[in-house]
């Protein structure tokens, strides 16, 4: 069995060699590389980040991130580098602009609006009950008393 596993490892190892391995001396950079490739979006296959995608452009962007990190560029500088070429689209973190502010505002407005709606409706119901039904009840009671 052990021999079989060893054989398997030997046969498949060339496949591993094809995987790109980006190694950094600095573990901080290594971590940043993983974070950035998760956060940057592949412009070709748009629902994948560049870490997941196998498109050529994703390969190129990964290599670029690696190069820039080794040049000592910061996280913000690398994201800016990508944005200046592929637009805001390339980052999964949208910037706050007059157009995108609604992404944050709409849910808040909705919750406040819904709360207001529920509260005012409830109050109205209680009032309706008070006026109409009680008046009727009163008149019925009066009839009974007569």
């Amino acid at each position: 069995m052990k021999k079989l596993i060893l054989l398997f490892v030997l046969v498949t190892s060339p496949l591993w060699a094809l995987e790109e391995a980006y190694n950094f001396d600095d573990p901080v950079k290594q971590k940043l590389f993983l974070e950035l490739t998760q956060e940057l979006r592949c412009p070709q296959c748009q629902n994948q980040n560049i870490a997941d995608s196998d498109a050529m452009i994703a390969h190129d962007l990964r290599r670029k991130v690696y190069e820039l990190l080794n040049e000592g560029k910061s996280r913000a500088e690398i994201v800016d580098f990508m944005k200046s070429r592929y637009g805001d689209f390339v980052s999964y973190q949208p910037p706050v602009t007059p157009l995108t502010i609604w992404l944050w505002l709409l849910p808040v407005i909705f919750v406040i609006g819904a709360a207001w709606f529920v509260l005012t409706q409830r109050k109205k119901q209680v009032n309706d009950f008070d006026e109409d039904v009680l008046a009727k009840a009163d008149s019925l009671l009066e009839k009974e008393n007569d």
Binding site: M56, D60, L61
Partner: peptide
Amino acid sequence: RDYSLDLGVTG
């Protein structure tokens, strides 16, 4: 493919 990257080429 650096220049393609500078131009924002996706494919």
